[in-house]
Each structure stands twice: as C-alpha cells, then as structure tokens.
C-alpha cells in the first residue's frame, strides 16, 4: 500500500498531489512534464520534496514535518530507469547481482528464477554495450527485482524501444505481474501500457492529480473517448 502526499516546485512545474493506493500495479499516467517521474524519484528518495509524506506498506519513508527521511540505500525500492542505467563496466551477471543481498542458500534459486523468467541466460556474460534496447531493459528489471524490493518503480520502461522490442518487454512485464507479487508503480504516457499492466490509474496533468480510477474505468473511458473520435 502506498500513501503519498507531496509539494514540490522546480522549473515551471508546481507539483502538489496526494493519493493513496492499494492496487498491486499502480500506473501514473499523463503527458511529459506532468510530474510523473518526480513522484517516482520522491518514492525512491532521489528527490526530496519541499514538503511531503510517503508511506509504503506502513513504513514512513519520508515525513518532512516529522523530520523523517529514510536514506535511499535503505528504502529497498527497485527502480527501473527509463534509460536502464546498467553499469557499463560490469557484465550482465554482475549487474544483476549488484543489489542482491547477502548470498545465502536461496540466492541461487532466486537468481536462476529471475534469469529464466526474463530469459537472460544467454546474455549473462555480455557487457551492456553489447545488448539491444529491449535486452537492457530486461536486465534492468531483473537487477531491480534481485535487490528484494518492497516496490518496483518502472519509469517509461518501453520508451525508446522499437515496436518489436516494446511488445517483447511488455510481455515480460505482464509475466512478472502474474508470477511475482511485487507492488509496482508504472510511469507511462502510453494508454496501452496502462491497460496491459495496471490495476489502478492516477492521471496527472501539470503537477496535479486529474483523477484516480480503477483500470476498468480507465479502459472504459478510453474506449468511449476513442468512439467519439471520427
């Protein structure tokens, strides 16, 4: 469960929003510059809002009024950045293991499970510069998952991919949703990604929440909107 309330201003954007969600996959949907990535950065701790309170699964990650700010490294948030941000000097294997906690007996099974799920086996000894865009995003997702996150943040994970890779990564993300039970926040400006992955949608525009709706209502609204189009 995620409770978020924040106020922040930078550049032309004045961000002021509050929401609470119990969905397993929440989509933050809106045009570029709506403030979606800022919300992810605030959850991960990469952005400290001027004021705000963020509670994830009952743990207060940030409460500016009470002076609480859990350090980024201790938040256990798996962040899949838009550009992947794989470590260029490390192999795929070592990228995947970077955030993995101490290597106990279960780590091997878990590692193999994620590698199988995302079909990363043939890529393990490669360096990021030898991967395609879709492969990089799959490694980034695997790396985030192996860090045992309480929440997975996906920032436009399909942006910049060509059509075939988009379909492929979307399919992997769907599989992840079915097989792993990790609370996920998806940021996107593509309605089809929202429809394929989310359970609930928070629509943002110019730093404000326009509406928060369950996925069925979002899909119905989109269908109605499409029907009106000539």
């Amino acid at each position: 469960m995620l409770e978020l309330q924040m106020r922040h201003a930078f550049g032309d954007l004045d961000l002021e929003l509050a929401f609470r969600s119990e969905a397993r996959t929440l989509a933050l949907f809106g045009h570029s510059g709506a403030g979606k990535t800022s919300v992810l950065n605030a959850i991960a701790g990469l952005l400290e809002p001027r004021s705000g309170r963020i509670v994830l699964d009952g743990e207060v990650l940030l409460d500016t009024a009470a002076g609480v700010r859990v350090p980024i490294a201790q938040r256990r948030i798996g962040y899949v950045f838009q550009d992947g941000r794989l470590f260029p000097h490390l192999s795929v294997r070592h990228n995947l293991l970077y955030g993995a906690p101490a290597r106990d007996a279960t780590y091997r099974t878990e590692f193999d499970g994620i590698v199988d799920l995302l079909e990363l086996g043939p890529l393990l000894e490669r360096r990021p510069h030898n991967l395609s865009g879709g492969e990089r995003q799959r490694v980034a997702v695997g790396r985030a998952l192996l860090s045992h996150p309480r929440a997975l943040l996906l920032d436009e994970p399909l942006t910049g991919l060509h059509a075939e890779a988009r379909v492929q990564v979307l399919d992997y993300l769907r599989r992840l949703k079915q097989e792993l039970r990790v609370f996920t926040v998806l940021v996107t400006h593509h309605a089809d990604e929202v429809g394929a992955l989310a359970d609930e949608v928070v629509r943002l525009s110019a730093g404000r929440i326009v509406r928060q709706v369950p996925i069925a209502e979002f899909v119905a609204r989109r269908a109605a909107f499409a029907a009106k189009e000539p």
Partner: peptide, 13 residues
Amino acid sequence: RRLEAAAETLGAG
C-alpha cells in the same frame, strides 16, 4: 552521476 544514483537505489552505501 545517474549510475551512482542507480547504485544507491540498489542499496549501495
């Protein structure tokens, strides 16, 4: 620096 930030989100001090 974004790589350092990514490492930080993965728990690296």
